[in-house]
Structure formats: structure tokens, C-alpha cells
């Protein structure tokens, strides 16, 4: 079993969508192009296409989420699929058995797709490897590993704002890289799109070991880290990082790594500011920046629906007459 063969079928089509690494540039460009075609749908007065009519999609969330689950649900409904939301907070029972049992029970209800979020890295891979052959699995976030639809909606947003030539772009990702599945997926996607420069900016306590091997330059200083960049992606900082001795205080973090209008002066004059949400105002960034003209944070949310429609329809379209 390799990651490649797990999410791509023998014809090079998307079978599951589990992580960005293992995909190729052609495929992620296809996802972006497909999303572009769906972006129009979400702006029509009748916001539905019949692509997945009669299909049943299960949002299987083992971890709390509002935004991601909602946009997946909307995306599925706009594709005319039936949607089942199942929220399972981790119980004290043996996780593996629970997960596999849950899976088998849902399979017995003849569903077509699982959208999975789980606190353990590798959970979506595990489910994809063990699900019945007709079922597609979309990873909606596994541990610190991967959140590929978030990364794709971010790429979609960058492409819309900055154009398709990623080679001309400098992108900085700022914040808690260590615990971030979003950052890992973004770095992979940016590299697949041949982005000119990918930087990560954080104190060393929030940078994973050998982070440069992910394909990013490591910076510990915000000013130099965002110097002349075209895109800044701010990551959410969880409050519990203070308890884990990763940081002394939210105050000092904001002083050093929080994004303000003043610090933004170091970036390119037409810099775009992004955030996967939800924002901690006054921790990662000033409200002035979040709500300012450079921010595309709400566009990101809107684009999330089109991108998820694209991924879902691509993974399901493969099924028609092709079981490979």
C-alpha cells in the first residue's frame, strides 16, 4: 500500500482525497479548474447541480468543527447529494475498533462517500485503506498531518487574487506550524505549484524538526520572514499552547508574531492576507488587518464550497463505469 496508489487510481484519477503529497501538479490544477467552474454555481439563484443526485455522503467528524463541516455539507447539497452528519467525539473505548466498527455499520447503509475528520494523523488513510471499494474518502483534517481541501481552497484563493503564475510569488505562513495540518498541506501544495518562495515563520518551539525538509525556508523573525512577500497566511494559535510551554503568553506572541498594519509594511505593497479561521483577534492579527482591504479571509470561506464541490465530484465521477 502506498499513499499514491491509495488516493489515485490506475488511470491517474482521484479515488480518495487524503493528502496533497503524492498528488501531481496536473491533478491539483484540475481541482482548481473544476472549482472555478463550480464557483459560478454558488452565485446563481438556484445553487444546485445534479451531479451527485442519489448519492449519499456521510460527514464523519470525530473532532469538533463548524466551518469545515458546514462547507462540506453545503458543497454536497449543491451537488444534489444526500448528506448525513455524524459527530462522534472520542470515547474511551479502543479507538481502532470503534473506528472500524463505525465504518462497517455505515457501509451497511450503502453510503457512497465519507468526509472524515479525526484527531489522529493517518485516520483518513486508515479509513480509505479499509473502506469498501465503492466508497470514496475525503480527508477533512487528520491530526497534525493533512487538511487538503483547506490547502486547495487557499491555493484557489491565491490563484484568483494573484493569478496562476505561482513561480512569481513569495508566500509566508506564520504561526503554529508544529501542530498545523493546514500548514503541512499548504506547503506541499505551494511546492507542487512551483511557488517562488515558501517561508514559515514562528518561534522554534512551534516549528517541527527538520521543517526545511517539507520544502520551506524557516524564519524566526516576522519582519524578515514577511519581507517582500506577496501572500501571508496566518495560522490559528490555540490557547492551550501557553500551557504546553510552547509560548510564554499570548501577549508576547502578539508582540513578536501578531500581524499589524505596521508590520505589514515589510511585505509587498499589494500583499494578500489569509487565515484558515477561526481568528483569534489580537493574538494572530489585529482586527484592523483581518477586516482590512488586504484580507481575503471571507473569500476563503466562500471558495471552500466550490473547492469541496470539485473534489467530491471528481472523486465520485471516477466511479461511473470504472472500478479500477
Amino acid at each position: 500500500m502506498t499513499r499514491h496508489s491509495l488516493q489515485i487510481d490506475k488511470n491517474g484519477r482521484l479515488r480518495h482525497f487524503l493528502c496533497i503529497s503524492g498528488l501531481n501538479r496536473q491533478l491539483i490544477t484540475e481541482i482548481l479548474d473544476t472549482a472555478e467552474s463550480f464557483a459560478g454555481v454558488t452565485q446563481q439563484s438556484v445553487k444546485k447541480v445534479p451531479l451527485l443526485r442519489g448519492k449519499t455522503i456521510v460527514n464523519l467528524f470525530f473532532e469538533a468543527s463548524t466551518r469545515t463541516r458546514t462547507t462540506f455539507e453545503l458543497a454536497a447539497k449543491r451537488l444534489s447529494a444526500d448528506v448525513l452528519n455524524i459527530n462522534i467525539t472520542q470515547s474511551s473505548t479502543v479507538k481502532g475498533e470503534t473506528l472500524l466498527d463505525t465504518l462497517r455499520n455505515l457501509e451497511a447503509m450503502h453510503v457512497d462517500m465519507f468526509v472524515v475528520r479525526h484527531a489522529d494523523s493517518g485516520a483518513a488513510h486508515f479509513i480509505a485503506a479499509n473502506a469498501a471499494p465503492h466508497i470514496s474518502v475525503i480527508n477533512a483534517g487528520d491530526g497534525w498531518h493533512s487538511h487538503p481541501t483547506q490547502a486547495m481552497l487557499d491555493m484557489f484563493t491565491i490563484r484568483r487574487v494573484k493569478g496562476a503564475d505561482f513561480g512569481a510569488l513569495r508566500v509566508a505562513i506564520v504561526g503554529d506550524i508544529l501542530h498545523s495540518r493546514v500548514a503541512r498541506s499548504q506547503i506541499h501544495a505551494l511546492n507542487l505549484l512551483n511557488t517562488g518562495e515558501v517561508r514559515i515563520v514562528a518561534p522554534q518551539s512551534l516549528i517541527p524538526a527538520h521543517a526545511e525538509s517539507l520544502g520551506a525556508q524557516v524564519h524566526h523573525d516576522l519582519q524578515t520572514g514577511i519581507k517582500d512577500v506577496d501572500v501571508i497566511i496566518m495560522l490559528r494559535l490555540q490557547r492551550e499552547r501557553m500551557q504546553g510551554a510552547f509560548l510564554p503568553s499570548a501577549h508576547e506572541y502578539f508582540e513578536l508574531f501578531g500581524l499589524t498594519e505596521e508590520k505589514l509594511m515589510h511585505a509587498s505593497p499589494d500583499v494578500t492576507v489569509m487565515h484558515p479561521g477561526p481568528i483569534n483577534r489580537g493574538v494572530e492579527m489585529d482586527s484592523e488587518v483581518a477586516d482590512g482591504p488586504r484580507s481575503v479571509i471571507l473569500e476563503q470561506v466562500t471558495h471552500g464550497i466550490a473547492v469541496r464541490m470539485a473534489v467530491m465530484s471528481m472523486a465520485m465521477s471516477r466511479k461511473e463505469g470504472d472500478t479500477g
Partner: peptide, 13 residues
């Protein structure tokens, strides 16, 4: 092991 692979896979090292 806290190293390149755990970093890529997002596993606690």
C-alpha cells in the same frame, strides 16, 4: 522518531 518522517506525517515525535 522526531525527524523528517514524523514531521511530514504530522505524528507526535
Amino acid at each position: 522518531h522526531e525527524g523528517r518522517v514524523a514531521t511530514r506525517l504530522g505524528l507526535r515525535g
